[in-house]
Design a protein around this nucleic acid. Structure first.
Lengths: 342, 342
DNA sequence: GAAGAAACTTATCGCGCGTAAAATTTCTAT
DNA sequence: ATAGAAATTTTACGCGCGATAAGTTTCTTC
């Protein structure tokens, strides 16, 4: 770290004794040059701290080394954790992850896609908000930029989808609940994304298969403040005579967290220990669900598997020049997490 | 949206009937051109969807329109919410916010600062991890890039700091707790940032001022999994005879959430309603703290004020060419939030 | 040690835009 | 109407790098 400041790649090439095109090659892939020249370049790098101008690089490269990550709602630690995983893997492969959150707003999602077009990313990992209205725009985007969907599927859109298998996870917890007590009813809000619908349908068919009458309780709510919606809806339902049975399966953990808070407010005990208590279960194994009172029984989504596989498929896609042979869907199984709430 | 595709600014200038330098001026600031020419450009923009190449723009501009946002731990909804606020304000001013999370790791924080150097941002909003070891590096960074610190202060570093006034908020809740029941003891973990220390010191002096003996209980924990640390530590302390008094003030809400879960596990009732119960209070008004059982009494940090002021100061800094006259510290008051836990 | 392959150097172009200076047009105020 | 200010156009250059082609050096292989 001494000597005069290096202003551009030519100057750095001069002080390292290597020609500029070779230095350029090195920065695009250190293994593409001979070992001895690589050593000379890296020796120079230790004396002069030069870094190529990323804007000049990206202007001329066909493809940048940027990976766009779009999640629907970053204040939900579930997505924050997945984003963290994905970021780490991208960095490990020498790419630049750039994280965006739609914050539950379709307009923002649209703006993000527009921004991403300008960024000319090598690929995009997109967990869409999932309302149907945006389908056409997202489809158009996916045709321009190599994109892998995760968490929330849109049929036929994007080159691949990675998520959880609601058709496996919901029957899993339904059967558990039926075996350990009264059959559950299903507590849901209007679907902000397709998973919610799939979960309800999976609930209905699982209950029918087990010979029970599927009861669905839907509450109001249009935002992504799921805890608040679960709380308000819970106060309402529990105040008006409660659920059909003493077991409630919520369409996700955040709703369940709100429902538990509502039950507490109304002095209705929650848990599996006493038959007079109401049992509450969720879905996702949200980072906070082990700290509710009582801790929440739920089905864990395999965070790590979903994020790993998403990145893996995206990089296959990038290496295949942006087009896979056919659309690939990968669904991971949920894992039953038995805690005290149900 | 018709006509041939526009490939660059020259082509767009041609079809809009304006010279390229003027078009360039328009994109840098639409108000810098005459209203009539602005109208002509925007008319052309509706027919041909052209957008300037951001890489070419940023390569030549002295300053980009990028704003870096760095938070220590994005899986904490507290920071996710602040980031959301900041992003929105930056977008409103025509800048590009780019969000980074250190994920609690100093090495990652360092890498992020290096990346930010390459991005040549107009300014950076940085909530540092706060361990002393990184001080020198951050100080160096702040001298190169206009930076405003928030949430966690580092004395003398950066052009400004915006955060909460622990010296106001802690006495506030201490006095409330003393007036409504037995004086609190303080539940803390080893400080991952300066706020933790400030809060403990504020607790000690507030208690002394009120004529009580300040009891501090410190538990182990080096990560950012505060809930888990609070839970494990809570099990340990409560299992070994409990706290000195029946009132516990936690150094932050996430720790309190873990402690409440530990109390539940041990069948120790929590709340203010019965003198035999343990009272638990937190600090921050974390997004989830209203959904604990019982809901958490705490001191709210003014999210909105902190993020608004941070952005405001940063833009002042940018307009002042990166240097303010002197370092500016803004501390916002906390607001007592009385819920059922204490 | 010779021949061929692989890696490097030299020279040159292009990318899409910012920026500056000078010449020209358009606006504003009296 | 006219002078002066303000905005725009013209012209020209520069930014830092990717990419390519042709010539040169270095390595590999037998």
């Amino acid at each position: 770290m001494d000597g005069p400041k290096i202003r551009n790649m030519q100057e750095f090439a001069d002080v390292s004794g290597i020609s500029r095109p070779t230095v350029s090659k090195y920065f695009n892939d250190p293994n593409s040059v001979r070992r001895t020249t690589r050593a000379r370049i890296e020796a120079a790098l230790e004396r002069y701290d030069y870094r190529p101008n990323i804007y000049a690089m990206n202007q001329n490269r066909r493809l940048t080394k940027t990976i766009g990550i779009v999640v629907p709602y970053l204040s939900d630690p579930f997505f924050a954790e997945i984003a963290r995983n994905i970021e780490r893997r991208c960095l490990g492969k020498g790419f630049w992850p750039v994280l965006f959150s739609s914050h539950g707003e379709e307009k923002l999602e649209q703006d993000i896609l527009d921004s991403l077009r300008s960024l000319k990313p090598a690929g995009v990992l997109l967990a869409p908000l999932g309302r149907r209205s945006a389908k056409r725009e997202i489809e158009k985007f996916c045709k321009e930029v190599p994109t892998v969907l995760f968490d929330s599927n849109i049929d036929g859109v994007g080159e691949a989808f990675i998520g959880s298998d609601n058709a496996q996870s919901i029957p899993l917890i339904v059967e558990y609940l039926c075996r350990t007590g009264s059959p559950p009813c299903f507590f849901e809000m209007p679907p902000v994304n397709p998973n919610a619908n799939k979960r309800r349908n999976a609930f209905v068919s699982a209950m029918q298969r087990l010979g029970h009458d599927p009861q669905v309780v839907r509450i109001e709510g249009k935002t992504w403040d799921f805890e608040q919606i679960g709380f308000d809806g819970g106060l309402d339902v529990l105040g008006k005579g409660g659920f059909a049975t003493n077991t409630v399966l919520c369409s996700n953990d955040r709703l369940a967290i709100g429902l538990i808070a509502a039950a507490y407010e109304l002095r209705i005990p929650v848990g599996r220990e006493d038959a007079s208590h109401i049992r509450i279960a969720g879905h996702d194994d949200h980072p906070f669900s082990r700290f509710t009172s009582p801790p929440l029984t739920t089905v864990a989504q395999d965070y790590a598997a979903i994020s790993n596989k998403s990145v893996e498929v995206l990089f296959n896609l990038i290496e295949a020049d942006g087009r896979l042979g056919q659309r690939e869907e990968t669904l991971f199984d949920g894992r039953l997490v038995m805690r005290a709430s149900a």
